[in-house]
Amino acid sequence: MESLATTTFDAIKLLLSGDPEIWTIIGISFQISTTAIVIAMVPAVLLGFVLAYYSFPGRRFLVAFFNTMLAVPAVVVGLTLYVILSRQGPLGDWKLLFTQTAMVLGQITLSFPILVAMSHAAFQSTELRAWDTAKTLSSSIAKAFFIIMREVRFPLLGALLAAYGRIIAEVGASMMLGGNILNYTRNIPTAIALETSKGDFAQGIALGIILVSMAFLLTMGLHVMQGKGTVVHD
């Protein structure tokens, strides 16, 4: 216990010291994950919406496919993309392996099914009356879509948080696709894995504190936006 307390104290000191290496790692992590989520968000939410409100051949297959993808380990996604992006792979000529772009691709692949499945569930939770009413009131499908989006904004924000939480903390795909290159592709989880293997627990814990703090702040933000967080009204 004493050792853990000492290491945590060292980790906090390290964070407060403004160590450029650690803050570069944090910056890279947020930059890559935010880029991935921003790219994946719009098409995934649209797909979730289409799966919830439109009937077409293959719809059930797609729903089952994206739900299955939720269970795929990050390292398998990393391995698949590694094979595709490696020099011998079909996209080897693009020379993306061990770049931030490859990491973004990996994180898009990981976050997309979460966003689709959770936004589909969010849209599905509304009544058919809601969609019919939105269409009746609106002069265009786009306006009706935004009315429904507003109606399910909290579950959608929850989906975004879940997807963001998954990709910013995943290590398998980032390690395989980014290569853990200092000041370029080393992000929080790959740095934690590396520092822990070297026995430098303070830096690992410092980065862990950042991850947990971020998760807490995002969750609190969502909670504040939702209001009192109760179904009872005065």
Partner: peptide, 17 residues
Amino acid sequence: IKNDVMYLYQEPYMFDG
């Protein structure tokens, strides 16, 4: 009819707000 016919449910749906 999309902008000219309006259907109201028995229990109209009220959106959040």
